[in-house]
Amino acid sequence: MRVARRLVAHEVRLLVSLALWMVRRTQGVDGGRAFGYARGQGAMMAGVGFVCAVETVAMSVLLREWPAAHAVFLVLDAYGVVVVMARHASSVVRPHLLDAQGGSLRIRRYAHVDLRVPLERIASARRELRMTRERADGELDVEVGSQTTVTLELTEPVTHVTLLGRRRDVRVVRFHADDADGLVRALGQARV
């Protein structure tokens, strides 16, 4: 039951992100400096959305002789298109957030990753372009387009909670930021 609640909450966050995107608002960036990460995935998400839309039309043509199946697949396919748009929207409206006053860096991705890293736990921050690799114990890769551009090494672990509620402690966090150099510089200034 708890897993179902978490999944429903995730879907609601996605739909809220879509609504915020349509009115050009961001979520949870008051009092901090936002760093986007969606630029590198826009073309891919548009491509996936286009393929989903084509599939919706194709299924409508294939199932026109079976009205009940046609209705079911039309609803599912249309919802699939909405979810693809909402995932991209959540990346745009939920940027990474450096809150120097609050002493934390929020690393986010879509509507399911929101990791708060206290600034005092950051041992080093560097710009480092890496392609995604196998998951290692104590490390978290929050990639976009299978790459990360910033690496944080922590003095003590922070707890990452997955979409389904599993907890794991991480000491190294790699993530993507469109302006990785600016983010690393801002982190250096905030930690002084």
Results as ranks from 00 to 15, higher is better:
residue 73 F to P: 15
residue 114 D to S: 14
residue 107 I to G: 01
residue 85 M to Y: 05
residue 101 Q to C: 15
residue 152 L to E: 05
residue 103 G to I: 08
residue 93 V to Q: 14
residue 108 R to M: 08
residue 84 V to M: 08
residue 74 L to R: 13
residue 82 V to I: 13
residue 94 R to I: 02
residue 146 S to L: 02
residue 96 H to S: 06
residue 79 Y to R: 14
residue 126 R to F: 10
residue 130 R to Y: 10
residue 143 E to H: 13
residue 152 L to Q: 09
residue 114 D to C: 13
residue 81 V to S: 11
residue 112 H to N: 14
residue 154 L to S: 00
residue 93 V to E: 14
residue 158 V to R: 00
residue 154 L to P: 03
residue 109 R to I: 00
residue 116 R to W: 11
residue 98 L to Q: 15
residue 130 R to M: 11
residue 81 V to Y: 06
residue 133 R to T: 08
residue 173 V to F: 01
residue 130 R to P: 00
residue 123 A to H: 03
residue 76 L to T: 01
residue 119 L to E: 12
residue 80 G to A: 10
residue 170 V to N: 15
residue 71 A to Y: 11
residue 157 P to L: 10
residue 166 R to H: 11
residue 151 T to E: 10
residue 100 A to K: 10
residue 87 R to T: 15
residue 128 E to F: 03
residue 130 R to I: 06
residue 168 R to Q: 14
residue 128 E to A: 06
residue 167 R to G: 12
residue 143 E to R: 03
residue 136 A to N: 05
residue 83 V to E: 13
residue 106 R to N: 04
residue 85 M to T: 05
residue 77 D to E: 12
residue 151 T to V: 11
residue 140 L to Y: 13
residue 126 R to L: 06
residue 96 H to V: 04
residue 93 V to A: 05
residue 147 Q to N: 02
residue 134 E to R: 04
residue 108 R to V: 02
residue 161 V to Q: 04
residue 107 I to V: 12
residue 165 G to T: 14
residue 72 V to A: 13
residue 102 G to I: 02
residue 120 E to F: 11
residue 126 R to V: 03
residue 152 L to G: 03
residue 109 R to L: 13
residue 82 V to M: 09
residue 168 R to W: 07
residue 100 A to C: 09
residue 101 Q to Y: 08
residue 133 R to Y: 00
residue 159 T to E: 09
residue 133 R to P: 03
residue 131 M to K: 09
residue 119 L to A: 06
residue 158 V to F: 09
residue 117 V to E: 05
residue 164 L to S: 06
residue 170 V to E: 02
residue 90 S to R: 15
residue 137 D to F: 03
residue 148 T to Y: 07
residue 107 I to A: 07
residue 102 G to P: 09
residue 93 V to G: 05
residue 154 L to G: 14
residue 103 G to C: 01
residue 173 V to C: 08
residue 125 A to S: 07
residue 105 L to N: 02
residue 96 H to W: 01
residue 167 R to E: 10
residue 117 V to F: 08
residue 154 L to A: 05
residue 154 L to H: 13
residue 121 R to Y: 01
residue 151 T to K: 13
residue 76 L to P: 10
residue 92 V to C: 11
residue 87 R to H: 01
residue 115 L to W: 02
residue 104 S to C: 04
residue 173 V to A: 03
residue 79 Y to Q: 04
residue 102 G to Y: 08
residue 109 R to T: 05
residue 134 E to V: 03
residue 103 G to A: 06
residue 92 V to L: 00
residue 106 R to G: 01
residue 123 A to D: 12
residue 163 L to H: 11
residue 140 L to I: 00
residue 123 A to T: 04
residue 139 E to D: 06
residue 88 H to C: 01
residue 127 R to F: 12
residue 159 T to S: 00
residue 167 R to T: 06
residue 103 G to R: 01
residue 94 R to N: 10
residue 150 V to R: 05
residue 130 R to D: 05
residue 91 S to D: 15
